[in-house]
Amino acid sequence: MNVFRLAGDMSHLLAIIILLLKIWKTRSCAGISGRSQLLFALTYTARYLDLVTNWVSLYNTVMKVFFIATSYATIYLMYLKFKATYDSNHDTFRVEFLLLPVTILALVLNHEFSFMEILWTFSIYLEAVAILPQLFMVSKTGEAESITSHYLFALGSYRLLYIFNWIWRYYTEEYYDLIAIIAGVVQTVLYCDFFYLYFTKVLKGKKLQLPA
């Protein structure tokens, strides 16, 4: 554990809390992509099955349980409790275009051809692109509420901070995991355009609005 890793995890935690609070306080999930949330739930389920096969630390276990539980709570709020507020007509990204390549890639490019390892690899690749339906939704409607922007910023920062963590680990422990690093870089790059808009608009008090 180093400061980048901890900051990354806290950023991830913050993103989820922002999202849940936004939905709960406004009693609405308008502007949030249910498809991205389903992909995140699938990501954490596939990755954290190792909760039952190996113990890392109490911190690790608590965070994993939190990520799995909150991802399903988000889905419950979006698809059941506040279903009437879900913008499904703007949430039209075809997730099979992500799931199919990610599945094939996980079967081909992995550290070890075992059940758990392929699920882990699948989750790493899937997480990298899981935000695309959300970004697609923002570009389709041309705008995002400030709170949604803060959520996306925290979520994007998390993998960026992990990249610094990997650089740190490479120099201090000679540890590196190419699959996680490459997927993490791809994941972060997908947010670049959003980061730019966040700094130039949202932080100056303007709404995130794309040029028509």
Binding site: N54, F115, W120
Partner: peptide, 10 residues
């Protein structure tokens, strides 16, 4: 063996 890799990150 189900898993020989231990992933210590989240």
């Amino acid at each position: 063996i189900l898993q020989s890799f231990t992933h210590d990150e989240l």
